[in-house]
Amino acid sequence: MIHSIENDYLKISVDDHGAELCSIYDKIHNREVLWQADPAYWNRHAPILFPNVGRFYKDHYRINDREYPAKQHGFARDSEFTCLDMTADSITHVLKASESTMEIYPFDFELKVKHVLDKNQVCVCWEVTSHSEEPMYFTIGGHPAFNVPAEGIGSKEEYHLTFDGQDSLSYLLIADDASGTAAADKLYTLELDHGTCLIDAHMFDKDALIFDEQVEKAGFAFPDGSPYLELTCHGFPSFGIWSVPGSSFVCLEPWIGRCDDSGFTGDLSEKKYINVLNKDEIFNASYEIKIY
């Protein structure tokens, strides 16, 4: 079931399936901002990545010398959430551990996802609670895809990526070993002009750009340089930017944890940027999408 709320600026819709934000309609400019999941390119809108962001090396992970299989980006995005609450300005969903999740993720968890509408901004809020006796390890992230170009305005390559005033950023790429993990031994540089760069047609030829400990704000500007949208994620250690070549969307991905470095075979507790909760502890994080 899809639930919708709106104000004078925006109308948003969230699906029980994956608690996925599936529409951000800009009422001021009469246009859809969120990618509408054309399966010819990518059949999702803004999935929640939990309990893992990206892929584990060789698609499994180890806890206390036991191995578990894990698919890319975890299982939450393909799970049916329960809608807990709807107000005039928020929609809250929950997913709880089950027998099927325990087979591949041996922790008793509760994941709440709340979408809050505030004027021309959407806040995506996560709350993770552990009910496990043992320490619970996880990563979590967002994967919203935005229409670039906006309807009827230019081409993708005429749009600017915007950051928070940096002169340049360093990033990793996905390894060439078909593992879907990061080639951590080689850094690339994204040169910026006053914190911006054009979206190059070949920017995503090797999949996502992976930024560690540099990006807490990113967005898009129209061809004339005026702002289109901005995503803010204070305190998030990693960030991804991804698109499918030839498509008309770009993803801005705020991550708290990310894919393995290629070749990593350690215990899950040793993974870079891993999060841990003890029994009854609660983890909270949120990011904001602002539409101009």
Rank of each mutant, 00 (worst) to 15 (best):
S98C: 00
H73D: 14
V128H: 00
W126V: 09
V124C: 09
T101R: 06
S79K: 01
W126Q: 10
N120I: 09
V113T: 14
C83H: 11
V113P: 04
Q121G: 01
S90A: 15
P106Q: 06
N120E: 15
W126K: 00
K114D: 12
M136W: 08
F109T: 03
E133D: 15
Y137R: 08
T82Q: 15
G142T: 11
F81P: 05
C83M: 09
V113D: 01
V94E: 06
I91Q: 02
N120K: 09
L95I: 04
S79L: 05
T92S: 10
V128E: 10
L84G: 00
E133R: 11
G141L: 06
K112H: 13
L95C: 01
S100I: 05
P106N: 10
G74A: 04
K119I: 02
C83I: 00
D118N: 15
V113M: 09
D78T: 15
E127D: 07
P144H: 03
L111F: 07
T82S: 15
H131T: 02
G142R: 06
A88H: 11
E134P: 05
S90H: 06
S132N: 12
I91R: 01
E134G: 03
K114T: 15
S98P: 07
G142Q: 07
I140K: 06
D118K: 14
C125K: 12
L111M: 05
Q72H: 09
Q72W: 01
H143N: 10
D118Q: 13
I104P: 03
L117G: 11
F107Y: 14
Y137G: 05
K112W: 05
K119M: 14
M102W: 09
K96W: 02
V124L: 08
E103T: 13
D108I: 12
D78C: 09
